[in-house]
Design a binder for these strands. Structure first.
Lengths: 209, 209
DNA sequence: ATGTCATCTTTACAGTGTAAAGATTATGCG
DNA sequence: CGCATAATCTTTACACTGTAAAGATGACAT
């Protein structure tokens, strides 16, 4: 670990940029987005409160990099989930993977959608977001028997945004503990493993054959 | 308006509790949830920074009352939307009403689901939340031809949480500007009036009617 | 009228993000 | 090698935040 204090380390950390991103991500995992502070991140990296601003311009700059990592990880999982099985099974697997990601990393997940906290001129963020989106689009395209090249038709677009909205809404409602009161499922894993798949079935699979 | 300064008003406001709730709601409407501060709310009500804590215990207590009002307003709109038309049309109308509420009052909407910002032992909040929920449940029950008394069956519950998740996710994605990049719809009203209804159609109406 | 109690203010404290200026070290160039 | 320059990090300072504690005020019942 690179946790030396200033006295023994000197002024130059050597890998501060990455160390700050890691520290921020860990802090997010421990305390959630609302427990995040820039100063605590700096503390964990063993530097002064103003050090992060030099590398990222400010809080938003640092969080944008963390969000980009989150999107990349989500894209990776969606790609894996959309890799095997029938198209209907893939769609369900991707939905489950989406919600699972949100439940496993609530801090990252919330951050990724906080438009007011991120810098949207950052190419790293845009690219990672696009990849996650494409993973879903590929499955819908396959479901509708459309080639990679041609533009998705209106109903395909409705399906794409529809499935995303469903998974996204379910994830948010789960994290905000709005479902625990009405569904007799106890834990969050119950929700993920039984309730959500049954919703996808009811909404999609049963009707697509 | 009850905006007199301390000098001319004296110590007792007379209606401070309600005035603070109104001021908080307006501040939420103007600057969003992230722009909200307790001190600014107090400033607008013309009282000292510590005055609100006496009535609400702290920030969470005040916001809980505002959230309860938000839930009540949402419940009112859902009840109206679920009042006329076929069951399928009612379901669509309630979905649209849900998203419209979110787009019209982003601050309220975000607050209502911020589990970490609200006091959940407050009966006013619980009651208002339950009413909104019931408005949706009534429609799903009608859709499945079930009486008011009997318990909703598994598929009905899946539909209920499914439609809610879809509307909720779509609302969030819209507010976080995640849909504008891919759908060729320009404004948020476009999303509401054309894109979202088409999603509901694709997901529900076409297959139930 | 008088004491009690709710209401609001004042004061204070530990936090926060970040701008500005200073200290230190790496690095490229003669 | 010697040295200017630039990059990196620290220090200091400021305007905020929420809220706890203690003091001031006035309404109200006895």
């Amino acid at each position: 670990m690179n946790e030396k204090k200033t006295a023994e380390r000197g002024y130059h950390h050597g890998d501060l940029r990455d160390a700050l991103i890691r520290a921020a991500d860990e802090l997010l995992a421990e305390r959630g987005l609302e427990g995040f502070t820039l100063r605590e991140t700096a503390r964990r990296a063993g530097v002064s409160p103003a050090a992060p601003s030099h590398h990222f311009g400010g809080t938003a700059g640092l969080l944008t990099e963390v969000a980009a990592l989150g999107w990349a990880e989500l894209a990776r999982r969606l790609a894996i989930a959309g890799d095997t099985g029938s198209t209907a099974e893939r769609l369900k697997a991707q939905g489950v993977a989406y919600v699972r990601f949100a439940v496993e990393f609530p801090g990252r997940f919330h951050l990724m959608f906080r438009h007011d906290m991120l810098l949207h001129d950052q190419p790293s963020l845009d690219r990672a977001t696009g990849e996650a989106w494409n993973a879903l689009e590929r499955t819908v395209r396959a479901l509708r028997g459309q080639k990679e090249g041609e533009e998705l038709d209106a109903e395909g677009e409705a399906m794409l945004i529809g499935i995303w909205s469903t998974a996204h809404g379910f994830a948010h409602l789960t994290l905000d503990k709005k479902l625990s009161r009405m569904a007799e499922c106890g834990s969050d894993t119950d929700m993920l493993d039984t309730l959500f798949p049954s919703i996808i079935d009811t909404l999609w699979v049963k009707r697509l054959g």
